[in-house]
Amino acid sequence: MPDRAKSFFWYELMTNDLEAAEAFYTRVVGWTAEPFDAPGILPYIVVKVGDRGVGGLMAFPEEIRESGMPPAWMGYIEADDVDATTASVKAAGGAVHREPSDIPDVGRFSVVADPQGAVFMLLHADGPELPPVPMDAPGHIGWRELYTDDWESALEFYSGQFGWTRDAGIDMGEMGTYQLFAVNGEQNGGMMNRPPQVPVAFWQFYFNVPAIDAATRRVTDNGGTVTFGPEQVPGGQWVVTCTDPQGAHFGLVAPAR
């Protein structure tokens, strides 16, 4: 386990229509977008709030497109040593989908999955470390949510690998427990056993918006679909889950309706 707990710090959409995805998310979330040019990288768009990057949008590489993978948001967890952390994930029962490799002018990364199959990426970025972004910062990620087969073993895995700690648990009746987790003492997200309509384990990310109803209208006005909500959650925030026009899942979280 690392000396300091590690969490998600970069988010990436892989999509089959890069131009449409850029138009959708800049309108819905309010991001600005700018191309990122680096040797050997497919067209890549960085989405930003002010001068701070939130994540990236990229079109499927041909080999992934041919595999039939649907459009999806994925998160990068910070790693001091990508090679060692990748090996540790595998030793703990996870899978390695792409061995560690270098991205010129970006850093070293790998693609892995937890023992229940939820995919995420590891990254050691080149350049100075940026300060963490507050959980409620507009346009940034306000919540991280894992749908899994066994949240208790999932929490044990992420705690062992990245130093996460158990926080409060919420009884959701027939749906079971929604277990919150903390990173370096701050609530960072939640995990739950996936319901029957969710076919695989996966991570879902929620973007901060000022007001949930207006943001929900922006989703539907721009061709997206609302799959749940708006709903008020413990603590008073409002959430909605959605898919973009290409089918990628995401959520929105707001302090008010």
Rank of each mutant, 00 (worst) to 15 (best):
P2A: 10
D3M: 10
D3Q: 14
D3I: 09
K6P: 00
K6W: 05
S7F: 09
F8E: 00
F8Y: 02
F8V: 00
L13Q: 06
M14R: 14
E19N: 11
E19M: 09
A23D: 11
F24M: 03
F24E: 01
Y25Q: 03
Y25I: 07
Y25R: 04
T26E: 05
T26C: 09
R27G: 06
T32V: 05
A33H: 02
A33N: 05
E34C: 05
D37R: 12
A38F: 08
P39T: 08
P39Y: 08
P39G: 06
I41V: 13
L42A: 15
Y44E: 07
V46T: 13
G50I: 04
G50S: 01
G53N: 10
V54I: 14
V54N: 09
M58K: 10
M58H: 11
M58R: 14
E62G: 10
E62M: 11
E62T: 13
I64L: 15
I64D: 10
R65D: 13
R65S: 14
G68L: 07
P70C: 09
W73Q: 09
D83C: 05
K90V: 12
K90M: 09
A92R: 15
V96H: 05
E99N: 11
E99G: 09
P104E: 06
G107S: 03
V112E: 10
V112C: 14
V112A: 11
V119K: 13
F120E: 05
L122I: 04
L122K: 04
L122M: 02
H124S: 13
A125N: 08
A125M: 12
L130I: 07
L130N: 09
V133S: 04
P134C: 05
M135I: 14
P138A: 00
W143K: 01
W143F: 04
E145D: 13
W151E: 06
S153E: 15
S153D: 14
L155T: 00
F157N: 03
S159Q: 15
S159H: 12
T165W: 08
R166P: 08
A168Y: 12
G169M: 09
E174F: 11
M175T: 07
T177S: 14
Y178S: 00
L180T: 14
F181L: 04
A182P: 01
N188E: 11
V200A: 10
A201V: 01
F202G: 10
Y206Q: 05
F207T: 06
N208Y: 01
A211E: 15
D213A: 10
T216K: 13
N222P: 01
G224H: 04
F228S: 14
F228M: 15
G229E: 01
V233Q: 09
T241K: 10
C242V: 06
T243N: 12
T243A: 13
P245E: 00
P245Y: 00
G247F: 05
H249Q: 15
A254G: 01
A254D: 00
A256P: 01
